[in-house]
Design a protein around this nucleic acid. Structure first.
Length: 818
DNA sequence: GGTCTGGAACGATTG
DNA sequence: TCCAATCGTTCCAGA
């Protein structure tokens, strides 16, 4: 398709040629993952620190191991410090006072020649030690061969695995699909998951306390949530050597699939909270409705155990390693999945894509911070053993010219990195938000068209503040819309729409198993793009849940966000990456028709006395709809619930008028954040909405809640992702302040969202707490600097990547409050 | 004829 | 174990 030929900035700074992790050492006959892996895994599970000594040089551990992985998983405090000191400019975060935002280094060389970070992860990445003879590497190598010299990573560095570009995991047939195993990978499956854990201080940061914490010898302790509780030990996966595929393969993979796919091979028990009973360390008194197992992790998070995260990540990586990357795509692949995989160009065919597009194909320089993270992500996603089955990708489109896609650089931030929407003069803004509902289509269905805007037409995105003549590329992918940090959605992929009605050129790419639409941002169009070429594809839950390392469950996990990114080359050679996410979009036919949805609320705060009227705008409101105000304890338990009076006479399908109930405590001295949701009946509840009760003696100057208590409100349009008014509790989005000055951690995890789920103590200011100078170090301490710059914890770790996730996670899912 | 849509059937899961 | 509610996925039909 011609779509692939849109202008691409020739000068786009890709950063240095993807350097091979480990100082360019060839992957060569790296230690066979198999044996090593198992060992590592066992050690990990057993928390045997011996082999994971922080002092083990990455390169030494495994030549092919991307240093990045270490950084990410670095749980060792001192390592964090090293990172900070070693990559001052890498993220444009420190000292240069340059524009804030996520900057890619122009060079991967560490100032001062600081050695690559060392970390236990080495074991994990050793996965790169794919079978020396594995043909999996060939595709990439070949592809790399055609890459432009400068950007062409050393062949040895290119590690492409079959299906890497695919969405599905052919190898994911592991019983891993079982809850237990999945849980184990929960965090691991997505390192970002690690961020979803609340942490009170750098000291408690999971990253600083390597899950690998030798001190934690008890699996239960180490993996309270997923690993231990979920039966890591009992999971087939626990023993890499044991082929987990057996059951899966026979049952659902190889077995003929009926027209109606059965659920994951292993009957998964979903709780209302989407949690697996067996895996739940401790039944939460307050059922958490989220449909994501990862959420369950948060439950533990509440418990304050953070060491598990890093460990989980490692475990995940190990799991990834345990996955036989050499698996034949056609083996053990669900009928449907296999079909799609085979129908389309094999991995090799996709290699025509710039190597950079696949963060995992090209091991980044061991000393490049950004890449390290990317690499880590890669690991976490199981990129090294890509077990994703190919999804219809219109292989023919991949034949696009091998233009130097600027964003293709593996040094670009991973898709699950949290980036700011604006920095310095630049601001990426969603001018027109997509409709709150968009029925996604299955592979078995025809396209259901492009996502549309509420008022008709299509969403549009514009990059403000860019005055260069070079066009840029806007990336679009489907992200999550739950309380956790934004990341690519496991069950949805963006679908490129073509046809007469589509005016916007686009082209597909795969980044870390996530399909990304690349759309040109042209100066002649004021750097504005009409997104009329993006549809949403729903992947079968059974397929994705079987994916190795996948911890999320698809059931009731039907909300997504359109995530846009743009990478702006800077004069100094670095790249500024901005990201903005749309409002949540409900993609389920049923949910869209039945679940009440609150899009706007006329007010977000009110004195404790209540009595004030609030108008809710949204969908599916009924006369019988109830509006329940809830105050949650830090552990997620509801400590107060009150049904608000609704004016049935004024109730309309799209609007609801309620009278704010008085707060339980009329003597509060500081704002208290609570939540409310609309309930149409059992299991038919809207997302939690933020609401703040103000002390009775506090005059209401404005309806917007204070910055400290109403992140959702503080995040104005600029923050994108949240409507003009309080939106549901979307952790990550909430973490992005609309104004640089509002939150130094703009765009980065450091700004833990005050999720309704985890309401801060009434007297405490979550924001202040989390953004304390000590916590975010320079970023916070340098008022004169651009607050948007990537911040790092005091320890020097890159907050954006290493900081634990904001608290977005909680026992209760926004989807199904209680 | 192909794409887009809305609706609903069917089977699995959940409580 | 049974049953109803719920949900995911597929299929159908009309625009």
């Amino acid at each position: 398709m011609p779509s692939t030929s849109f202008p691409v900035p020739s000068k786009f700074p890709l950063g240095p040629p993807a350097a091979v992790c480990g100082s360019g050492e060839t992957l060569g006959p790296a230690p066979r993952a198999g044996g090593t892996m198992k060992s590592a895994e066992e050690e990990h599970c057993g928390y045997a620190p011996s082999s994971l000594g922080p002092g083990l040089p990455l390169a030494t551990a495994h030549p092919a191991l991307p240093a990045p992985c270490h950084d990410l998983q670095t749980a060792v405090p001192d390592i964090s410090a090293v990172v900070a000191a070693s990559h001052p400019a890498a993220y444009g975060a420190m000292g240069d006072g340059g524009p804030a935002g996520y900057f890619l280094p122009s060079s991967h060389v560490r100032p001062g020649g600081a050695p690559a970070l060392e970390s236990p992860r080495i074991e994990i990445t050793s996965y790169l030690g794919l079978p020396p003879g594995s043909g999996q590497l060939l595709p990439d190598v070949e592809a790399e061969g055609v890459l432009p010299g400068p950007r062409r990573p050393p062949p040895t560095a290119t590690l492409s695995l079959p299906g890497l570009e695919a969405y599905r995991d052919p190898a994911g047939l592991s019983p891993a699909s079982s809850l237990s195993s999945r849980s184990c990978n929960s965090e691991a499956s997505s390192y970002e998951s690690n961020y979803s854990y609340p942490y009170a201080s750098p000291q408690t940061s999971p990253w600083q306390s390597p899950c690998v914490s030798p001190k934690t010898t008890d699996p239960e302790d180490g993996f309270p949530r997923g690993l231990g509780a979920c039966g890591l030990l009992g999971s087939p996966r626990h023993s890499p050597s044991a082929s987990p595929r057996t059951s899966v393969t026979e049952e659902s993979w190889l077995g003929p699939r009926g027209s109606r796919p059965s659920s994951p091979c292993n009957k998964r028990k979903y709780g209302l909270d989407g949690r697996q009973p067996a895996c739940s360390p401790q039944p939460s008194p307050a059922p958490s409705p989220h449909g994501s197992p990862r959420v369950s992790v948060t439950d533990d998070t509440w418990l304050g155990d953070t060491t598990q995260y890093a460990s989980s990540a490692i475990v995940a990586a190990i799991n990834a390693l345990s996955t036989d990357g050499s698996l034949d795509l056609g083996d053990g692949v669900p009928t449907k999945a296999r079909r799609t995989a085979l129908d389309h160009a094999p991995a090799g065919a996709l290699k025509v894509e710039p190597a950079g597009e696949d963060l995992g194909t090209t091991p980044p320089a061991s000393d490049a911070p950004p890449e390290e993270f990317a690499a880590f992500q890669h690991v976490r996603k199981g990129a090294f053993c890509e077990q994703f089955l190919a999804v219809p990708q219109q292989p023919y489109q991949w034949a696009r010219p091998r233009s130097p896609a600027p964003y293709a650089s593996p040094t670009l931030p991973a898709l699950d990195w949290q980036l700011p929407s604006h920095s310095g003069p630049y601001e990426l803004r969603i001018e027109v938000q997509p409709k709150s509902h968009h029925r996604a289509h299955y592979e078995t269905e025809g396209s259901r068209g492009a996502v549309k805007a509420s008022a008709g037409g299509h969403p549009s995105v514009q990059l403000h503040g860019y005055g260069e003549s070079e066009p840029l590329t806007l990336q679009l992918f489907i992200g999550t819309a739950d309380d956790r940090l934004l990341r690519p959605h496991a069950f949805y992929q963006v679908h490129r729409i073509t046809g007469k009605t589509v005016s916007t050129t686009s082209h597909e790419a795969i980044l870390s198993n996530t399909k990304v639409l690349e759309i040109p941002l042209l100066p002649e169009n004021n750097m504005r793009a009409i997104i009329d070429c993006a549809g949403v594809l729903k992947l079968r839950n059974s397929d994705i849940e079987l994916r190795k390392g996948e911890t999320d469950i698809g059931r009731k996990n039907t909300r997504v966000r359109l995530v846009f990114r743009v990478h702006i080359p800077q004069p100094d050679g670095r790249t500024l990456s901005l990201q903005v996410a749309s409002n949540p979009i409900e993609c389920s036919q049923r949910s869209a028709q039945e679940l009440p949805l609150v899009e706007k609320q006329s007010t977000a705060s009110c004195p404790v006395v209540g009595g004030k009227r609030m108008v809710l705008s949204g969908h599916n409101f009924l006369q019988d709809s109830k509006v329940i105000f809830v105050e949650k304890a830090p552990d997620g338990h509801h400590i107060w619930e009150m049904e608000a009076k609704t004016d049935r006479d004024l109730c309309k399908p799209n609007s609801l008028v309620v009278e704010i109930p008085p707060f339980r405590n009329q003597r509060i001295t500081s704002p208290v954040q609570v939540n409310f949701y609309v309930c149409n009946g059992k299991r038919k509840r809207s997302q939690y909405q933020h609401f703040t009760y103000l002390p009775a003696n506090v005059p209401i100057i404005k309806t917007e809640p204070t910055d400290d208590y109403e992140p959702a409100l503080t995040c104005g349009p600029a923050s994108q992702g949240l409507g003009p008014l309080p939106k549901p509790c979307y952790g990550q989005q909430l973490a992005m302040p609309p104004d640089p000055g509002a939150c130094l951690a703009a765009g980065f995890p450091p700004c833990p969202p005050r999720s309704s789920v985890m309401p801060p103590p009434p007297s405490a200011s979550p924001k202040l707490h989390d953004l304390s100078p000590a916590h975010y170090g320079k970023g916070m301490a340098s008022p004169g600097h651009d607050p948007l710059r990537l911040q790092r914890p005091a320890g020097g770790a890159f907050v954006g990547q290493e900081a634990p996730r904001p608290v977005g996670v909680h026992p209760g899912s926004p989807q199904q409050p209680q």
